[in-house]
Amino acid sequence: MAHCCGHDLHTSCLLGVARLLSEEKARLRGRVVLIFQAAEEALPGGGRMLMETGLLQELGVEAIYGLHTYPFLEPGQITTREGRLMASPSEFIVEVNGRGGHAAAPHQTVDPIVAAAQIVTQLQTIVSRNTDPLEPAVVTVGKINAGTARNIIPEKATLEGTIRTFDIARTREIFARIRHISEHVAAAAGGSAQAELIEGYPPVINNPDTTARLLRVAGPAALPLDAPVMAGEDFAFYQREIPGTFFFLGSGSDEADSRHTWHHPRYNVDERCLKTGIAVMAGLVPGYCEAIQKRL
């Protein structure tokens, strides 16, 4: 089981950076800290836990950079933008309670599956009718669980999903609507519902100075990114205290069948992107020799 996002390639890329920098250690100025990503897809996120240890602060880290594979560009290309890059992802769970019974006698039950289906439909109105159309927001139900057999109406149904915004206050407003809709739709069906919000990472906001440096190092490999994306990333926890920039590494090609979007079951990467990822990350280190970059 995997969420298919390229984290194995991220690890390989950083190992390549480590090897190159260790070979040219005498040329480097200052200290370089390499962070392998832990628990990025599981709240509260490895970035938050690492920052809470105080280790990076003790080491005096002054700038931080990170990358993620990007199937929408070719190997040899990167993209990023100053300011808003990625959204803040939070999670929600809704439990709908009814009264179970035989599928042949629905009138003797309170069907939580029907109520859950109506809740999913009603949640689609939150972004279109309850949020500012000029502010990005996403509400997605990604998991529904109910029932044990075809001829049984279950006691409960559970919905799980995600809220994406660039402002935690907006996330809380959206969740309030999720809770209100869930409780009242379930009550109208004769049941009840409880909703829980699990707040996630902050948004990824790229620092102007570190972004400008990244673009200089990447040169013509860097392409503009016109708008932020609504995916989330725990790199945001580093940026709360350390100036930093996150960027996307082109990994899509027809040859590698790697143009499928993140989390697609056939997600793949074109490993030729390692060359670019290693060169850019190593090139960000002060004192790193340009001749070494050229050999990549």
Rank of each mutant, 00 (worst) to 15 (best):
A115Y: 08
E74A: 15
I163T: 03
L9T: 13
A42M: 15
Y70I: 00
A256P: 08
D257R: 15
P243L: 00
A157E: 10
I242H: 12
L215P: 09
G252R: 00
M51G: 01
K156P: 01
R240D: 07
A39Y: 03
G244C: 00
G277I: 01
E199N: 02
I119C: 07
D111M: 10
D254G: 12
P75R: 09
R99K: 13
A149Y: 08
R150C: 11
V269K: 05
T165L: 07
Y238T: 06
D226Y: 12
K143H: 14
Y288T: 12
V120K: 11
L215T: 11
Q239H: 03
D8R: 03
P228F: 10
G250Q: 07
I144D: 04
A104H: 09
F237Y: 15
A176L: 08
K275R: 15
L28V: 10
S128C: 01
A26S: 15
Q118K: 14
G219M: 06
Q108I: 11
E74C: 14
G46L: 02
E271C: 04
V127T: 01
H102Q: 07
P106C: 14
C5D: 04
C4G: 05
C4N: 14
A176G: 05
G83H: 08
S128D: 03
L21Y: 12
A18F: 15
A105K: 11
A87R: 02
A149K: 11
Y65N: 02
T69L: 13
G6V: 00
A116T: 07
Q293S: 15
A256Y: 07
D111V: 09
E23F: 01
T210L: 01
S90G: 08
P106M: 07
G277Y: 00
L123V: 11
E41T: 07
R170D: 11
H107T: 13
C273A: 13
L21D: 08
T109H: 10
A189L: 12
A157V: 07
F36P: 03
S253V: 03
P208R: 13
V96W: 02
L225C: 02
I64H: 01
M49C: 15
R19I: 08
G147D: 02
H260Q: 14
H264I: 02
W262E: 01
K143Q: 14
C273E: 09
Q194S: 15
T211A: 05
A38N: 03
E82Y: 05
R129C: 10
F246V: 02
T171G: 08
V120R: 08
A282V: 01
A291M: 10
A187W: 05
L123D: 04
V17H: 04
P75W: 06
S22W: 06
L14H: 13
P75N: 14
F175D: 02
G6A: 07
Q118V: 06
M230Q: 09
H7P: 00
T165G: 04
L249G: 03
A236N: 10
G191R: 02
L197Q: 06
F166C: 05
I35Y: 10
L14I: 07
R81P: 01
P286E: 14
L296M: 13
A105P: 00
